[in-house]
Simulated assay, not measured.
Amino acid sequence: MNLSEAVRLERDKRKRQAFIRREQDILSVCESLMAEKGVRQVSVDMIAARTGVGKGTIYKHFDSKRDMLIAIAAQYFAMLIELLGRSNDPARAVSDWIEAQLYTPRRSLLIHELVATLEDDSEALDKIQDVRYQMRKRLAQVLSGSSSTRGRPFERAMWLDAIVQGALLEMESALKSESFDEDEWVESITRIVPILMSQPKLKFRKQDLTYL
């Protein structure tokens, strides 16, 4: 490789890095604005103004606001997947996964609001559903590394995900008690981890499985 080729490759590398950084800045601003104003109220004009770039620059990265919403949801679930792989201890990994969601309830619930705005867009929902499935699949893999035989791993992953989503709604509910303590609440939810990972197998009667 000659010097001019090396210079060109380095320049292209820096351009790609700058492009990725700017794209992340756009997504961060979009998410911040949605947290402030609501998902439906945020426009591409607002995102461009807050980011300090022109709308044309925004559209070099994303075809529409819809694509930004999909990217934000994908990043959120990718973050949860990454958390599940940080520890070799399954119980610690699952606890980290729970705490990451419950200690940032507004961000977690923003994903619910984001999905609700896309409810008539089946293609967008399919993309988000796919990345959520990958997150649940990774959670099931972590759970299967335990000694528990309580239900199949993917079933336990769905149970746990449903519990966490319900806990998030309670944390932001206007009906929660004035004495509500966030740390105690999160601790109470994480107590289910050793239960899921060590309880003996439950025996279900066929007639009990009414959800099938």
Rank of each mutant, 00 (worst) to 15 (best):
S108V: 06
E10F: 10
S64C: 04
L69S: 00
S28Y: 06
D126L: 11
V186Y: 04
V131P: 13
Q129E: 12
E82F: 08
L80C: 02
P90F: 05
Q41I: 03
A71S: 06
S108T: 05
Y76P: 01
L69I: 10
G38K: 09
M158W: 07
R92K: 13
T57P: 01
L118P: 02
S28R: 06
A93L: 09
V39R: 09
S32P: 02
D63T: 14
G38F: 06
L102D: 04
M79K: 13
I81A: 02
M135H: 12
A78M: 04
R150L: 15
P153T: 08
S32L: 08
E123A: 15
S95K: 14
L27K: 08
L143C: 06
L9W: 04
D120H: 12
L80A: 06
E172I: 09
W97F: 13
S177Y: 07
R106V: 08
D96T: 10
R11N: 14
A140S: 08
Q141I: 09
R16Q: 15
A6Y: 11
G56D: 12
V193R: 08
A100L: 15
A71E: 08
D181S: 15
S32D: 13
E82P: 00
K37Y: 12
M197H: 03
L27H: 05
S179C: 02
E82Q: 13
M158D: 07
H112S: 11
A162C: 03
R40D: 10
K37M: 02
D67H: 15
V44Q: 12
I47C: 05
E155H: 11
L196K: 01
W159T: 05
V42R: 08
R205F: 10
K60L: 08
I26P: 09
T190D: 09
A73P: 00
I70T: 06
W159Q: 07
D183L: 11
D130E: 11
D183N: 15
V115Q: 07
R21E: 14
E99R: 13
R40L: 13
R22A: 05
K37N: 09
D181G: 06
S177K: 07
E99S: 04
W97C: 08
V186L: 04
R205K: 11
N2V: 03
I195E: 12
D45G: 03
L69V: 01
G54S: 15
